[in-house]
């Protein structure tokens, strides 16, 4: 492989990972506020379908993304309402919505499979695209990729540097204490669940309008779960999550290359890769494994290992605010 090819591969990894990055950023916001939106897989399927159909019917790309975002926001609103207002289990609601999104997308999209539709146009950023190596990888892409990259830094700044971000995290860490300081925990949780859901919806539409253009049943099936796992792997940080999404994309790309190199190995082995990878990375960052590693690690390695591997979910993730 020469340099040109390598750059092309890296650029395609970035493109492939972009929707995943958007979904991961969205879900990270939601979970940092203390709500698990488990419905990602269903949300992404339904918004991929809706986004494509809306863009196909109106021939307007932006309307496609808007429709996807609306679907995502609506599903998230259901999760928020049932958990915040009705105190139902977030996992239960999320799981039902996962199945429902899947079957609704199959039913509603049945007349729109394998049709042409608009797709996100390529747009190289002048000047920046000429930076050696980085230019062609990062700045010779389309708007979606730029959006994803900006989103990583925007959510990261928002979470860790801004005052609203402080309040957002406090709602997920210790809602009772946040409430005592005048943070409106319920409103914040609604807000970030819906925003996160809208981003997930955009991610779903990004598949059918950019990365895997078009719609067919089960178009993005499984990717929502991958995104949820990456949020954990990323330790609920957008930057780490984005790295996770890129690594996932890179592994898939590597698998494609390997598959071509070893045609005698069954395609099955390569299909299994993402799921084995999912278990592998979750094992890697799990407290049980990391704890065991840390106790036995040489003292010099403890700090870096801890920083690299130990992740902690927001302490109040999935629990409700108890203020009476």
């Amino acid at each position: 492989m020469d340099n040109g090819q390598l750059i092309a591969v890296l650029a395609s990894i970035l493109l492939q990972a972009s929707p995943l990055i958007i979904a991961v950023c969205g879900e990270t916001l939601t979970e940092r506020a203390g709500i698990v939106n488990l419905s990602l897989d269903g949300t992404m399927l339904l918004s991929a379908m809706t986004g494509f159909v809306a863009a196909h019917l109106t021939d307007n790309l932006m309307l496609g993304f808007a429709a996807g975002a609306a679907v995502g926001a609506f599903f998230a609103l259901i999760v928020a309402f049932s958990s915040i207002q009705l105190k139902q289990s977030q996992v239960a609601t999320g799981f039902v919505l996962t199945l429902l999104g899947d079957s609704l997308s199959a039913f509603l999209g049945q007349e729109y499979t394998r049709l042409p539709g608009p797709s996100v146009p390529h747009f190289a950023i002048p000047i920046l695209k000429d930076i050696p190596i980085l230019g062609p990888i990062i700045f010779n892409q389309d708007g979606l990729v730029y959006f994803a990259i900006l989103l990583i830094f925007a959510t990261s700044w928002w979470l860790f540097r801004s005052r609203p971000g402080l309040e957002l995290r406090s709602a997920g860490e210790r809602p009772e204490a946040a409430f005592a300081r005048g943070v409106n925990v319920r409103r914040l949780r609604y807000l970030y669940t819906v925003i996160g859901g809208a981003l997930v919806g955009i991610a779903g539409a990004a598949y059918s309008l950019d990365v895997k253009i078009g719609w067919s049943e089960g178009h993005t099936r499984g990717l929502g779960w991958i995104a949820l796992a990456i949020v954990i792997f990323g330790g609920w940080s957008p930057v780490r999550g984005a790295i996770g999404a890129l690594l996932f994309g890179a592994t898939k790309a590597a698998a494609t290359v390997l598959q071509r190199a070893f045609p005698e190995v069954s395609v099955v082995a390569f299909n299994a890769l993402p799921w084995l990878l999912m278990i592998g990375v979750l094992l890697l960052v799990s407290n049980k494994i990391v704890g065991r590693l840390l106790v036995n690690a040489p003292p010099a390695l403890k700090r870096p290992l801890q920083r690299m591997l130990q992740v902690a979910p927001p302490a109040a993730l999935g629990t409700e605010l108890k203020n009476e």
């Binding site: 299909n271 299994a272 084995l276 999912m278 278990i279």
Partner: peptide, 23 residues
């Protein structure tokens, strides 16, 4: 033993089972 939530472990195993069947 591994601290992987049963939802994620189970989901991955579902997909692996489908892939195994196809194989």
């Amino acid at each position: 033993r591994g601290g992987v939530h049963e939802i994620f472990g189970g989901l991955a195993l579902n997909n692996l089972a489908i892939i195994l069947t196809n194989y």
